[in-house]
Nucleic acid binder design. Structure first.
Lengths: 140, 140
DNA sequence: TTCCTTATTGAAAATTATTTTCAATAAGGA
DNA sequence: TCCTTATTGAAAATAATTTTCAATAAGGAA
C-alpha cells in the first residue's frame, strides 16, 4: 500500500493511530477536522489520542496522502488524497465533498496570470462550493 | 466612501477602531491576521483592542469590504477587497499579495464541473502561490 | 522467536487563538 | 447640547494547537 511504503522509505513506522486516522478518513464522505477525527475514533472505541491525530495529519500531509480542504467559513478539514493534484467541491449544506481534477483546464489561465504579474506561480488552491444533488431535492 | 455608506445603511457607526483596521489593511502589502493587525495598531499607537479587530474583521467581511486569504500552511489573513469578485496571488517568500480578477475565465470550467457532478455551484476560492518578481531576483 | 533500538504514543501542561460578558464610552441624530 | 444605543476594551471563558516527557511498541537484528 501507498502509506506502508512511504513510511518505510523514511524509516517511519506503521502504527495503530496512523492506521486509524487513515481508516476514519477513508470512511468519511466529507472533510474532517482534527477534532471530528478524534470524535470518531472515540466512537469506534479505538481510543487514540487527539495529539496523535494532529501529528498524524501533519505527517500524512507531508507524505501528500491527505489534503487540506478549506471550509467556506475559514476552518478547514482533511480528506484522503487520491494520487495527483486534485480539487474539491464541497456541499455547503451537508458538507459532502467530491474531488475533481482539472489542473489541465486551469493551466492556460494560470500561465496568463503568470505573464501579467511576473510572479512565478507554482501552487494553487481551487475550491468550489455548492449544493449537492441530494440536498437540492431536500428543500423545504 | 464605501465604508461610510455601507455602515450607515445598516445603522452602524464609523468608529475609530474601524477606521484604524481599514487604514492598516490599506497600508499592507500582504494579508494580515487579526493578531498582526493588532500588532500594527500598537506600533501606530492607535491602541485599539484585539477584540475590536476581530469584531471589525467580521463586520467588514459581511459588508464584503474585506476578503479572507488562505495561507498555504492553513492560517489565513485578510486583505481589503476591491469591488467585484477577486482572487489572490500570494508570494510564498515575502507574503506580498496581488489581486486578479478572472471569474470569467473560470466560468466555463465551473460549468463543466457542475454538469459532471450535478452539484449546484455558487461559490469558489481560487488562490495562487508563487514567488514575486522581487523575491525571484533576491536569490542567494 | 526474543531482544534491542528508537520512533511513537498519550496525558498533562503550556501556548495561542477566538469568543463571550458586561459596565463604561462615544457616535451621531434630534 | 442632549439622549439613545451601537460600540468599545478588559477580563474571563472557551477552543484549538503545540510542547514536554516518561512509558510503550514497531520492526529489524540476532
Amino acid at each position: 500500500m501507498e502509506l506502508q511504503e512511504k513510511l518505510h522509505n523514511k524509516g517511519l513506522r506503521l502504527t495503530y493511530p496512523r492506521r486509524e486516522v487513515v481508516a476514519i478518513l477513508n470512511a468519511a464522505a466529507s472533510p474532517l477536522t482534527p477534532q471530528s477525527i478524534y470524535q470518531r475514533s472515540v466512537e469506534r472505541k479505538s481510543d487514540i489520542g487527539l495529539v496523535s491525530v494532529y501529528r498524524t495529519l501533519e505527517l500524512l500531509s507531508e507524505l501528500d496522502l491527505v489534503r487540506r480542504v478549506h471550509g467556506h467559513d475559514g476552518c478547514h478539514g482533511y480528506v484522503l488524497a487520491s494520487p495527483g493534484h486534485h480539487h474539491h467541491l464541497v456541499c455547503r449544506k451537508c458538507g459532502k465533498a467530491v474531488e475533481f481534477s482539472g489542473s489541465a483546464d486551469l493551466s492556460d489561465f494560470i500561465a496568463k496570470i503568470q505573464k501579467e504579474t511576473s510572479y512565478k506561480i507554482d501552487e494553487h488552491i481551487l475550491q468550489l462550493y455548492g449544493i449537492c444533488p441530494k440536498c437540492q431535492k431536500e428543500r423545504h
